[in-house]
Design a binder for these strands. Structure first.
Length: 255
DNA sequence: ATGGTGGATGGTCCA
């Protein structure tokens, strides 16, 4: 079973690339972030034509998440249960073949100390409480998406240069670690301890060409599911295309 | 310290 995640930065712009990518890799599940479209305009038919069911939670211009699968998507939930913080659509969850999937687009946070940073920190705490109250870590559970946090120094291109800034600050990492300590494993790190593998590169300053990136897109799994993890790959191919998303897909394969 | 680029949108906001 392949479970993947991809911040597409507009599903309407990226639809041809997404369709090609789905047909190449045939993932059982792909979690999308930054779809940037209202639900009425989600390209349901085009994706159904290539055999994918879709559940989505979008809004105009910003944010938006979706879960696509070639299998039935069950028990879909959108947003936080208490309804708060739903002004931004960043969370969708479902079950596929008895695997519980939580797809998140964690706020970017702009700059440490800004109001958006405060929103990010609050959202992280809200996510932790949500998982603690609504999920069973003893089940097969996935938390994946664009986390907008590089968890270790080796997950960014120049740790000294970016130390303490957005996506790598201690407070962000600690808040994310609290979620991880509920019982998640970073599947990418099960078999790969190397630095220099990133999932996001800024469009500006030729960052991709110079591999100035961050590994901020993650597939985390509960212990029982992580034990079945075969491989995790960051697929840089779509990032090399014309008009790419600034993020690369992450592909996790489970037995 | 600033700017660079890309998407949605229709003058800026967000990343």
């Amino acid at each position: 079973m392949i479970i993947s995640t991809w911040n597409v930065n507009s599903i309407s712009v990226r639809l041809p690339q997404l369709i090609e990518w789905l047909q190449t890799h045939k993932p059982s599940v792909v979690c999308l972030q930054e779809t940037k479209t209202v639900d009425e305009k989600f390209p349901l038919k085009e994706l159904a034509e290539i055999g994918y069911n879709c559940e989505f939670y979008g809004e105009r211009s910003y944010n938006g998440v979706a879960i696509l699968s070639d299998r039935p998507i069950m028990n879909v939930r959108k947003g936080f249960i208490d309804g708060d913080a739903d002004s931004q659509r960043r969370l969708i969850e479902a079950e596929v073949d008895s695997v519980h999937i939580i797809n998140v687009y964690i706020p970017n946070g702009s700059a440490v100390g800004s109001s958006k940073y405060e929103f990010k920190m609050n959202w992280l705490e809200k996510l932790r409480q949500h998982i603690q109250h609504n999920h069973d870590m003893n089940k097969q559970l996935v938390l994946c998406g664009d986390f907008n946090i590089a968890t270790e120094d080796k997950d960014c291109y120049n740790p000294e240069l970016v130390k303490g800034t957005i996506m790598v600050s201690d407070a962000e990492r600690e808040s994310l670690e609290k979620i991880k300590s509920l019982g998640f494993v970073d599947t990418f790190r099960i078999k790969n301890q190397e630095s220099g593998e990133y999932s996001w590169w800024d469009y500006r300053m030729g960052c991709f060409r110079r591999n100035m990136g961050f590994r901020i897109d993650h597939v985390w799994a509960s212990q029982s599911l992580a034990a079945l993890c075969d491989s995790v790959l960051i697929d840089r191919a779509p990032r090399k295309k014309e008009r790419p998303s600034d993020h690369a897909p992450v592909i996790a394969t489970f037995n």
